[in-house]
Computed example of a mutant assay.
Amino acid sequence: MITVRKSEDRGVANFGWLQSKHSFSFGHYYDPAHMGHSVLRVINDDVVAPSAGFDTHGHRNMEIISLVLEGDIIHQDSAGHRQVLPAGEFQLMSAGRGIFHSEFNHSRAKPLKFLQIWIEPNQHGTAPSYQQKSFGSELGLTTIITPDGANDTLQIKQNAKLHQLILASGSGLTFNTSIGRKLYVHLITGKLLINQVALSAGDGAKISDLQQLELLNGGSDTVTALVFELP
């Protein structure tokens, strides 16, 4: 089964310095029909004004993934990390028993665009940790996050995987997963066909009871997407 969540149907927040679209219920936006998918709880599509950002705040027992689409984030946390996260790099912060952090737009002139993603962990009360890495922009499917950190992927405290999908115009591939796994696809750019079901930029797709997906670029622009494998 494939259920499409259209971009224009997502929750919207506008605080002036922050404009956000929520794929699932978050903050002041609540929709009981969209509370997440398996352990995937948050996908926020954020645009942050120049020099603005999120002041120091805390998290506990959550795996928090950030992917910058345009611009750079300045990240600082209570574990002593102070990093710049540029466009294209993935960040995974395991909040564990508790961590405080802040995130700001590094630019004084241009907006910051990034995805904020939360996944519930299967281990609670662990020591907080921080990982950051660029995986490039090769065509095809690139594995970004795994439960064991195999092949230099980022390691998550959950039986979940995250893949980066990039397809040139006219190209496609077959994606296979194990029995019982749930999938979620978030389309960043382009037009994507999933078993002939069409997605446009900003759309998401909840997928269950399917072990094989045919992923095809359905337009003239490059497809960029995130593919989640979930318990």
Rank of each mutant, 00 (worst) to 15 (best):
K110N: 15
K110S: 14
L112N: 07
L112S: 07
K113I: 12
L115G: 00
W118A: 10
W118Y: 11
I119A: 03
I119H: 04
E120M: 15
E120F: 13
P121Y: 10
P121V: 13
H124A: 09
G125K: 05
A127H: 10
P128C: 04
P128A: 02
P128Q: 03
S129M: 12
Q132N: 04
S134Y: 00
G136R: 01
G136F: 02
E138C: 09
L139T: 08
G140N: 03
G140M: 03
L141Q: 07
L141H: 02
T142C: 03
T142W: 00
T143W: 01
I144L: 07
I144P: 00
I145C: 07
I145V: 15
P147W: 08
P147E: 06
P147I: 09
D148S: 12
G149P: 06
G149D: 06
A150R: 14
A150N: 11
A150D: 10
A150H: 13
N151F: 03
T153G: 05
T153S: 13
Q155R: 15
Q155W: 08
I156C: 09
I156G: 05
A160H: 04
A160V: 14
A160G: 11
H163F: 11
H163I: 05
Q164G: 01
L165G: 00
I166L: 12
L167F: 04
L167R: 02
L167H: 02
L167Y: 02
A168R: 13
G170Q: 13
G170S: 14
S171Y: 01
G172F: 04
T174I: 12
F175L: 15
S178F: 13
I179G: 04
